[in-house]
Write a protein that binds this DNA or RNA. Structure first.
Length: 955
RNA sequence: GCCGGUGUGGCGGAAUUGGCAGACGCGAUGGACUCAAAAUCCAUUGCCCCUCGCGGGGCGUGAAGGUUCGAUUCCUUUCACCGGCACCA
């Protein structure tokens, strides 16, 4: 038939027509506008379902085919839940602060605001073309002044809060001041000075409070990237290079805003048990937090052989193996450790020079150098000695950069016999090695005796596992013969009793560095008075807006300088103009604004809360809206990439917990269920030498055999990331133009499991397109556009449709969209076959069946479904229709086919009534002629009947 | 190095709790329709062997073992690939 004869054929142009029609209709009729409690039309009787995508950072390049994978998944869940009677919150917005727009501004001078808003336009337009059922009325961007206002407000909440160790939660600062004023808590000042509040002067009181805030100014060795002109978080530095751009990163001391996230380490770890998250993500977070149990031990320090010159403070170390204390033959401190300064002060000129050089070199060294030399240990003897409290021996103290300042105490006791790094260092510098743990099977009497004599012998390999302590006794305590865990306990008790050590839990998690020297981020709501102290800007003066800049070039320098330093007039203001409360500073006080800005993470830490109540101008979210949408456990389904397993998800959990402690949110965790969609990869073609050939230079000469066009050399099809150079990047706009959005949605969802990474194969899209075309022809006459409905209900089809209802519902619940779609295809194929096999007006789906089919299809191909739904005479939106119910009686067959196995191999099949019990099935199986033939007179030893599945006869 | 994951036809994948391996799609082959082609519909399609054919047999889920009446699924060893962490004491 020609096109003229089939004007209602479901082709790309037709799909485009209906898709745009229904998208416009949904928008006009507000189909997906979600009502909050208290709104007119809100139905309080329905349960809530909050399904959220990780919002995108809109880049100038627009969407790529990987973006929609998660969005289609959440849209299917949202649409199904709506039909299943839930109030569904399904929002979308923009993570709009960030480095790319700023870098573009550096190159072109175009203000990041313009770049960002045009990228948002593009993204919004592209996303709308997919027909996602977002409530667009809740859309916002993190750069919106109203949003920035509350991001700053949350920061002020942290400023005005402290962590109460005894209650294990954050509390408002006013409560700390109360404790101080009442004398219930003393003020702890440096050098172990403790005073009553009333004994402190104003500056001491101020210091006492500042030291307790959840956000504080800390002088940190920061990761300064001279090229980007900014400081980066540890998490943003990979192999000594910036995560973005791959520029070298150096370590510099700098005063930066920090969050006391370490106070939450244990809770962030514990509460991973509350959430339904992928195991790998929970493991990654747990490892990032890195809890380890051990002891802190203090060593007295003296200079050289002169025991008269004693260091003022003991040297504290953290160890997970206090049981090896007797084997500690030397100490190592980080080059930045305070003790090194003490050593320099007491060293002779030559030693001073050597130490100074080493410290300077390791400070200059970027992490990348440390990486490349990770196998070779370097270090310098400090001239100091420590007294091993267990053995009484004086052991040398070295400094080396394999000890990190910001883990534990920045110092270690080295046990070269039982730690590979210490061992390597000891070998390099010829330091003594003393064995104090034996493997359990070697720990016979003789071995212990000999080891305790020759305990200082050198070993080639280190024994790091648990074992039996040996050569570990002094006049007061003996660990000999104890297992590692018992030895740990005993030595800690001994140390504790003598006040030279105690049990300690340590975390790898560091406090969160929150300052960036960028322009395109949220300004901090804080100013500095002439005395250098920070003062918060009052809530009523928020948001603090960014000043306009014309030149966005970062100041490339070896010393950190914030970009906003260029806005001289903005920086220099008065307390009153900046909005500092007159109670804190007189309004005329000249102040400097904080020139650093917040990192990109700030906006993504709480956007899921803002969606609950995005237009609120008085609060970041109303208590009522937050309570309703977050419910008992938070967002019901959160879908996004696994690249956010640690950073975003840990930071957001931290902010949420602070807000929880302060009573602003009611769930301990933000995201109940998390799901990571897989990456969309592409095919690439590998030559014999391992290099990759661009996709457009390769042809398929026969099934699975590919050659390079120019050379004829055969190449192997492999899976690779999409990249411009391999010519295998797919633009979603092109795919939609050729097949329509419904086909795109179906294709991406049928490629495989949502969580798996899967290669895009344009050739396969035809399958999804043909499915919709076949479904269309099944329901609609291509010539007239009239519905084609069967008069009679065919029993087998009806049964199949019921099973499909059950299966599709279950599959959507577990996000197994690929198998749900396969089930829908089976229905259409069976119905199509029934029409071609039957005579003209028989076969196919009845009106009632078509209604149910369209409902099942609606979450996947919503425009297609809506079109047929309205052809069926339904005036309301399909999204308001109820999900088909499953008639369980139709799920049961009268007769079931069982496989009959002989010794586990399928030999034949057997039809049995579904009501037959195990005995009856056994009898029927044995009476089967085929079985009699196979048994050939032998008596079966054993017969296993699995009802509904199979019979296994063991002869 | 440590932690986590994956491995099934020519390709993407299915098998949800130890129970008929290969659902569904792509590709391929044959047929119907057509002057022809496209589209569509029908059929076949894991590999190997025997058979003119009907039909029958064997092998098969990265590899090697094990547990079990029965293993893609559980256990041990091992290989390959992917992701994360990486001098954290």
């Amino acid at each position: 038939m020609t096109e003229l004869e089939t004007p209602f054929r479901y082709d790309a142009a037709f799909a485009d027509g209906i898709e745009r029609k229904w998208q416009a209709w949904w928008q006009e009729s507000g189909s997906f506008i979600t009502r909050n409690p208290g709104d007119a039309g809100f139905d309080a009787s329905k349960p809530k379902f909050y399904v959220l995508d990780m919002f995108p950072y809109p880049s100038g390049a627009g969407l790529h085919v990987g973006h929609p994978v998660g969005y289609i998944g959440t849209d299917i869940a949202a649409r199904a839940k709506r039909m299943q009677g839930f109030n569904v919150l399904h929002p979308m917005g923009w993570d709009a602060f960030g480095l790319p727009a700023e870098q573009y501004a550096v190159q072109t001078g175009v203000h990041p605001r313009l770049t960002t808003s045009s990228a948002i336009e593009t993204f919004r337009k592209q996303l709308k073309r997919f027909g996602f059922s977002y409530d667009w009325s809740r859309e916002f961007a993190t750069i919106d002044p109203e949003y920035v206002r509350f991001t700053q407000w949350i920061w002020l909440q942290c400023w005005n809060a402290w962590y109460d160790e005894s209650a294990q939660k954050a509390r408002p600062m006013s409560q700390l001041i109360q404790q101080f004023e009442s004398g219930a808590r003393r003020v702890e000042l440096p050098n172990n000075i403790s005073k009553l509040w009333s004994e402190c002067d104003a500056s001491e009181q101020r210091q006492a409070i500042d030291n307790m805030r959840l956000t504080y100014l800390g002088e940190q060795l920061v990761n300064w990237c001279p090229k980007l002109g900014t400081v980066l978080a540890n998490e943003e530095v990979i192999d000594g290079k910036s995560e973005r751009g791959g520029f070298p990163v150096m370590r510099q001391p700098l005063k930066q805003w920090m969050f006391r996230i370490t106070k939450y380490a244990q809770r962030l770890l514990n509460d991973l048990q509350l959430v339904d998250w992928p195991e790998s993500t929970r493991t990654q977070q747990a490892e990032w937090i890195g809890r380890s149990e051990g002891a802190e031990i203090y060593f007295a320090v003296h200079v050289g052989n002169d025991a008269a010159v004693i260091a003022p403070e003991k040297l504290g170390v953290f160890t997970t193996r206090p049981d090896t204390l007797f084997g500690a033959t030397y100490m190592v401190v980080a080059p930045e450790h305070a003790l090194v300064k003490f050593a320099v002060a007491h060293a002779n000129l030559a030693a001073q020079k050597e130490l100074g050089n080493y410290v300077a070199a390791s400070r200059r060294r970027s992490d990348i150098d440390r990486q490349s030399q990770s196998k070779t240990k370097t270090g310098v003897f400090t001239g100091l000695f420590a007294v091993n409290p267990a053995t009484g021996a004086s052991i040398p103290i070295w400094t080396a950069d394999y000890v990190l300042l910001n883990y534990g105490t920045g110092a270690i006791m080295a046990v070269p016999a039982h730690d590979p790094r210490d061992h390597e260092f000891a070998k390099a510098f010829n330091l003594p090695i003393r064995i104090v743990v034996l493997p359990p099977h070697d720990a016979g009497e003789n071995k212990i005796a000999s080891a305790s004599h020759g305990g200082a012998s050198e070993t080639e390999a280190t024994y790091v596992q648990d074992g039996i302590a040996t050569a570990s006794s002094n006049a007061e305590v003996s660990l000999d013969g104890l297992t590692t865990s018992a030895a740990k306990e005993k030595i800690i008790a001994w140390l504790d009793q003598r006040s030279i050590g105690k049990k300690r839990v340590n975390y790898r998690l560091r406090d969160w560095l929150f300052s960036r020297q960028r322009y395109w981020g949220e300004p901090f709501p804080v100013v500095f008075a002439p005395d250098g102290l920070p003062y918060a800007i009052s809530e009523s003066a928020l948001p603090v807006r960014l000043p306009e800049l014309e030149d966005f070039k970062p100041t490339e320098s070896d010393t950190p300088r914030p970009l906003l330093g260029k806005a001289v007039e903005w920086i220099n203001t008065t307390a009153g103009a900046a909005g500092v409360s007159a109670a804190d500073l007189p309004p005329q006080t000249p102040v400097k604004r904080e020139a650093n800005t917040m990192p990109n993470w700030a906006g993504s830490c709480w956007y899921y809360l803002r969606y609950c109540d995005p237009k609120n101008t008085t609060r970041f979210v109303s208590q009522e809206a937050q309570k309703y949408w977050m419910g008992e456990r938070g967002v019901d389904l959160y879908v996004g990439g696994s690249e956010h397993a640690v950073l975003h998800l840990l930071y957001a959990r931290f902010w949420h917990k602070v807000l929880f402690d302060l009573g602003h949110v009611t769930t301990p965790e933000p995201f109940a269920k998390l799901f990571h969609q897989g990456m969309i990869t592409s095919f690439a073609y590998q030559r014999a030498d391992g290099s990759l050939a661009p996709a457009d230079t390769v042809q398929e000469i026969s099934d699975g055999v590919f050659t390079e066009k120019s050379t004829g050399q055969s190449v192997k099809q492999v899976i690779a990331k999409m990249s411009k150079s391999l010519k295998n990047v797919v633009n979603p706009d092109d795919v939609i133009a050729n097949f329509g959005a419904d086909t795109f949605r179906l294709y991406e969802m049928s490629m495989g499991p949502l969580e798996a990474s899967k290669p895009w194969n344009t050739r396969d899209i035809a399958g999804s397109f043909r499915f919709l075309q076949r479904a269309w022809r099944l329901a609609v006459d291509e010539r007239t556009g009239e519905l084609l409905l069967a008069a009679k209900c065919e029993a087998t089809l009806e049964k199949l449709l019921h099973r499909a209802s059950k299966k599709v519902g279950e599959d959507i619940e577990r996000l197994a969209f690929n198998t749900a779609i396969a089930t829908l295809i089976e229905v259409v194929n069976a119905a199509t076959r029934s029409t071609t096999l039957a005579s003209a007006d028989e076969g196919g789906l009845t009106r009632d069946q078509l209604i149910r089919f369209v409902k099942l299809l609606a979450p996947f191909a919503p425009h297609f479904a809506e079109e047929i739904w309205h052809k069926l005479g339904c005036a309301e939106a399909l999204s308001t229709a109820s999900w088909p119910t499953v008639d369980t009686t139709l799920l049961i067959d009268d007769e079931i086919e069982l496989a009959v196995q002989l010794c586990g191999k399928v030999k034949t099949r057997l039809l049995v009534p579904s009501t037959a019990d195990v005995n009856a099935i056994e009898k029927m199986a044995l009476a089967d002629p085929k079985v009699i033939e196979m048994l050939a007179g032998k008596t079966p030893k054993k017969i296993i009947v699995v009802p509904g599945r199979l019979v296994n006869i063991v002869a």
